[in-house]
Computed example of a mutant assay.
Amino acid sequence: MTVTEVAVTRTVALPEIADPSRVAPKDARQLSRLFFDRLAVLEEGTREYQYARNALIEMNMTLVRFAATRFRSRGHDEMEDVVQVGMVGLIKAIDRFELTREVEFTSFAIPYIVGEMKRFFRDTSWAVHVPRRLQEARIHLAQATEELRGRLGRAPTVKELSELMCLSEKEVNEARVASNGYTSSSLDATIGSSDDGEAVLADFIGTDDNALDLVEDFNALAPMIARLDGRERRIIHMRFVEECTQAQIGEYLGISQMHVSRLLNRTLAKLREGMLTSD
């Protein structure tokens, strides 16, 4: 039976498909519209309703396998779990889809499927892949930070953490960066409800990034910073990357806070002049 012939029967009964999972994706898109149309008027719990819903699930399983390919770097055993949670997302999409949305079901379903897969990784592992040594360093970093904070009455410097943890300053900074990968928030997370249904985080994200206007300035600034001497670059890095105070910088360099202030102002003036005179 062709798709055209199936459409003629929509007012009578849904067509019996021997194996919905073997329907070609192109035909599945057209047949899905017919099945959704009938599903909207069928009584939930009836045999025909259950058949229509199950057929929609099986016809659109290719969407789950397609979405799972972006996680193909995972092991085989984990990929089986990924497909299973993706099926949960597909079922949610089927239960919530309406033809009146005037969007293709594939476009509607993919975010649900991928959202369930990402939620699976968020709940069972780090939000991003982090080497084991950095995962362990994150724990030690948290412990060392709390110990030094209590002892010093302030936030510890990278140097102080490095000495306590018996790690290089580079490794301490890597552990700090790795800590950012431990947790994340899903864009599909429900944060409230409205007249149009559930409100998710993604509904409130998507504004223009004004920082993009600074890209050219950063590109022009980079070679000027490279021409600074070692101490000037170190002061700039500690102040604006590590966000150290002038007192902390002075303590690290073995100079007074006032001297740090003079060096910082002189260096910034040099960079400012270079930016104003550059083409």
Rank of each mutant, 00 (worst) to 15 (best):
D81L: 07
L63G: 03
E80G: 13
F71N: 00
Q50E: 12
S73D: 15
F66V: 08
L56V: 08
L56H: 02
G75D: 14
N54E: 15
I57W: 06
Y51K: 10
Y51G: 03
S73E: 15
L56W: 02
A55I: 02
V64H: 00
E80Q: 08
G75V: 00
L56T: 06
Q50D: 15
L56D: 07
M59P: 05
Q84E: 11
E78I: 01
A55M: 12
V85R: 01
E80P: 03
A52W: 04
F66S: 06
R72S: 13
T62V: 12
H76P: 13
V82P: 01
T69F: 02
A55W: 07
V82A: 04
I57E: 09
T69A: 01
R72W: 15
F66E: 08
H76K: 08
M79A: 09
D81N: 12
M59V: 05
G86K: 00
N54P: 03
E58I: 06
V83W: 12
V82Q: 02
E80M: 15
Q84L: 14
M59W: 08
M59S: 09
A52Q: 07
L56P: 06
L56C: 09
M61F: 14
G75K: 08
F66I: 12
T69V: 06
A67C: 05
D77S: 11
M79Q: 15
L63F: 06
A68R: 00
E80K: 07
E80R: 05
F66M: 10
T69R: 04
R65Q: 12
N60T: 05
M79S: 08
M79I: 13
G75S: 15
S73I: 05
N60W: 01
R72E: 13
R53A: 14
N60C: 01
L56G: 11
V83K: 05
R53M: 13
T62D: 13
Q84S: 13
N54V: 13
D77K: 09
V85H: 03
V82G: 03
R53V: 10
M61Q: 13
Q50L: 12
E80H: 11
Q84F: 14
E58H: 10
D81E: 11
G86F: 02
G75E: 09
M59C: 07
R74A: 11
V64P: 00
T62Q: 14
A68Y: 04
R74V: 10
V82C: 04
E80A: 14
R70Q: 14
R72H: 11
A67E: 03
G75I: 00
F66P: 01
F71H: 06
D77Q: 12
R72G: 04
A68D: 02
R53C: 12
N54M: 15
R70E: 14
E78S: 03
V82N: 01
L63I: 08
M61E: 13
M61P: 02
Y51Q: 10
F71T: 00
S73F: 15
R70V: 11
M61C: 07
F71L: 09
M61T: 09
A55R: 05
M59K: 09
N60M: 03
A67T: 05
M59T: 11
